[in-house]
Simulated scan of single mutants.
Amino acid sequence: MEQEGVRKFILDWERGSAPAPQAIEQLVDWRDILHGRGLVGADPARYGGIGFGNLSRRTATGFLITGSQTGALLRLEAAHFCLVRGWDIPRNRLQATGPIAPSSEALTHAACYAANPAIHWVFHIHSPELWHAAPSLGLASTDPAIAYGTPAMAEALTALADHLPLPCLIRMGGHEDGLIAAGPTAEGTGAILLQRLAQALA
Rank of each mutant, 00 (worst) to 15 (best):
V84K: 04
T66E: 01
L194P: 08
L94P: 03
I192P: 01
L157R: 08
S136A: 09
I119G: 09
I192W: 02
D162H: 06
I33P: 00
W131A: 08
A200G: 07
P144W: 15
I33R: 15
P128M: 12
Q195I: 07
A198I: 04
Q95L: 09
Q95K: 05
P184Q: 12
N54D: 02
E105D: 11
F9H: 04
D29Q: 09
G173S: 01
C82K: 00
G188T: 13
P135G: 09
D88A: 00
R93E: 00
K8I: 13
P135L: 11
P44K: 08
T158A: 07
A191K: 12
C112W: 06
T189C: 11
G138Q: 07
E2H: 06
T70C: 11
A181E: 03
R7S: 12
I146Y: 09
P90G: 01
R37V: 06
L74M: 12
I192T: 14
Q22V: 12
R91N: 13
A134S: 04
L137E: 07
A72K: 02
G149M: 08
P99C: 14
Q195N: 15
G183W: 04
F123G: 00
A159D: 11
G5L: 09
P99F: 15
T185K: 12
L197T: 09
Y148R: 06
W131H: 11
A186H: 15
T108Q: 13
A154T: 04
T108H: 05
P19F: 10
M1P: 04
P184V: 05
H35G: 07
L169A: 13
I65H: 00
A101Q: 06
I33F: 04
R57A: 09
L76R: 04
I50C: 08
A134N: 05
L194Q: 12
M1Y: 02
E129V: 06
A147K: 13
C112L: 15
Y113V: 15
P167K: 12
R15I: 06
A134C: 05
Q3A: 13
G16V: 05
L166G: 14
A140T: 10
